[in-house]
């Protein structure tokens, strides 16, 4: 499979202040890539650099295997972009903005447009100016998808959407993936990433700090180990794990040992209660960033 997006040591500085320091990633065709990071980490800067809205300071961008050129119309035709904040022409109606969008593409967008409008329950007669944040987001989603792009770049796509629409969007994206569409999905809402993405890349302070498959992230990292025992002080010494919580009779450890090792080490102690909990992506995220 070939890389649809490839970033090599991408750097962006706004004068003295850092946008991104060193972002390298590679996304293969048909993959949904979760791009995670807290606010200010550099997610939107990375995306805006890829979209040619801002100029990179250093590094390389390849889209569909070609060196980045903001005026490459062939690539632009194959790309759909949903910004985190959807800003459209306030004086137009939704129908007018969809018609306007169609003018830029050589193919007939009507069937896909109608399909998406129905799925997302959009009233095309409304004016952009009168739309709520959620409805504006829905219009943005249709604009990003109606030309059936091969690459979708979504920046915080569910912000403002109600839970039902979030599910609808995820269904749409999973169908897009089945068609072979590559999706870069930027978010700080970790649960939606865990249900949707194949690969997750973590960005912090403008640098990629971790990238792994969703399965590995779920399996291989850490678990929470909750133990209730009179011998808890000895157990702490024996395990050598970080304690994150202690209440009356239960101590919670961050556990990176495999289950057999834990059981072997605990065998000699009197244990009242033992619980191994799978860590949520939320907690994994906090462990990285906090």
């Amino acid at each position: 499979m070939s890389s649809v997006i490839e970033l090599k040591h991408l750097k962006k500085y706004y004068g003295e202040s850092r946008g991104i320091e060193d972002v390298s990633l590679s996304i293969e065709e048909g993959t949904i890539y979760g791009f995670i990071g807290p606010n200010g980490a550099g997610k939107s800067t990375t995306i805006r650099t890829m979209m040619g809205l801002i100029n990179k300071t250093d590094g390389e961008i390849f889209l569909f295997g070609k060196p980045f050129d903001k005026d490459d119309l062939e690539i632009k035709e194959k790309t759909g972009y949903l910004p985190s904040e959807v800003n459209l022409y306030a004086d137009l109606t939704i129908k007018e903005i969809f018609d306007y969008h169609e003018e830029f593409y050589k193919k007939d967008l009507k069937p896909r447009r109608n399909e998406l409008v129905q799925l997302l329950k959009i009233d095309e007669s409304k004016k952009i100016n009168d739309l709520s944040l959620g409805n504006l987001k829905k219009v943005g989603i249709v604009l990003a998808l109606m030309h059936s792009p091969k690459l979708l770049i979504l920046d915080e796509p569910t912000s403002g959407l109600d839970p039902i629409m979030q599910i609808t969007l995820h269904d749409i994206l999973l169908k897009e993936k089945q068609k072979g569409t590559t999706i870069l999905y930027s978010s700080h809402i970790l649960n939606e990433i865990s249900n949707l993405c194949d690969i997750v890349g973590f960005i912090k302070d403008g640098q990629m700090i971790k990238e792994d498959t969703m399965d590995n992230i779920k399996k291989n990292y850490f678990t929470y180990l909750k133990i209730s025992s009179k011998d808890i002080e000895k157990i702490k010494e024996e395990l050598g794990l970080k304690v994150i919580k202690e209440d009356d009779n239960t101590t919670t450890f961050i556990n990176n040992l495999d289950p057999n090792t834990v059981i072997n080490k605990l065998a000699k102690y009197n244990i009242d209660n033992l619980l191994i909990e799978e860590v949520s992506l939320e907690d994994l995220f906090i462990n990285y960033y906090m």
Partner: peptide
């Protein structure tokens, strides 16, 4: 100013 450029620049049209 209105940030609509983020949409316009994503369309298949050259800046020129």
């Amino acid at each position: 100013q209105d940030k609509t450029i983020e949409y316009l620049a994503s369309l298949p049209i050259k800046r020129s």
